[in-house]
Computed example of a mutant assay.
Amino acid sequence: MTNITRLHHALPLSSDVAAATNELDTAVAKAVAEAKAAGLPQGLIVAILHGHAHAETHWMVAK
Rank of each mutant, 00 (worst) to 15 (best):
H50C: 01
K36S: 06
A10F: 00
L11D: 01
S14G: 14
D16T: 09
K30L: 09
M60I: 05
E34N: 12
D16E: 15
N22F: 03
V17A: 06
K36E: 15
K36T: 09
L40R: 14
D16M: 07
L49D: 03
L11H: 04
I4G: 04
T21A: 13
G39Q: 06
V32I: 15
T26D: 10
A31T: 08
T26M: 08
A37W: 05
I48G: 01
N22K: 08
A18L: 04
E23W: 04
V28R: 13
Q42G: 03
P41S: 11
G43T: 08
S15R: 14
L49Q: 10
L11N: 04
N22G: 15
P12G: 05
A37D: 06
I48D: 07
Q42H: 10
L40S: 08
L11K: 13
L24Y: 09
N3L: 06
N3G: 00
T26S: 13
D16H: 11
A19K: 13
G43Q: 11
E34I: 02
M60P: 02
V17T: 14
Q42M: 08
V61E: 11
S14N: 07
A29L: 08
H8P: 00
H58G: 01
H52P: 00
A35M: 11
V46C: 00
A47H: 12
I48Y: 07
A53D: 03
A47T: 05
I45C: 03
E34Q: 15
T2Y: 09
H58K: 12
M60Y: 09
L40K: 15
A62T: 11
H9N: 12
K63Q: 14
G43C: 03
S14D: 12
V61S: 05
E34M: 08
A27Q: 08
E23N: 14
A29F: 00
D25N: 12
R6V: 12
S14A: 07
Q42L: 09
G51K: 05
S15G: 00
V32E: 04
E23P: 03
L11R: 14
T26I: 02
H58A: 10
S14T: 15
D25H: 07
H8G: 00
A19E: 11
D25R: 05
S15F: 05
G39K: 10
A18Q: 05
E56T: 05
D25T: 13
A10K: 13
T2Q: 13
T26C: 01
H9P: 00
A31P: 03
Q42Y: 02
A38H: 03
A27E: 07
G43H: 08
A27P: 03
N3E: 10
T2M: 07
W59I: 09
I4S: 03
V32L: 03
A31Y: 02
V32S: 01
R6F: 06
A20W: 02
A27L: 10
A53F: 01
G39T: 07
H8A: 01
A53S: 10
E56D: 09
L7Y: 10
H50P: 02
D16K: 11
A29V: 07
A19I: 00
I4T: 09
E34D: 15
E23A: 14
S15Q: 14
V61K: 06
E56Y: 11
A55R: 12
I45R: 03
T57I: 10
H8S: 08
E56H: 11
A47R: 13
M1G: 14
A18C: 04
E23H: 10
H58I: 09
T57P: 01
H58F: 09
H50F: 06
T2A: 12
A55D: 08
V28W: 02
L44S: 11
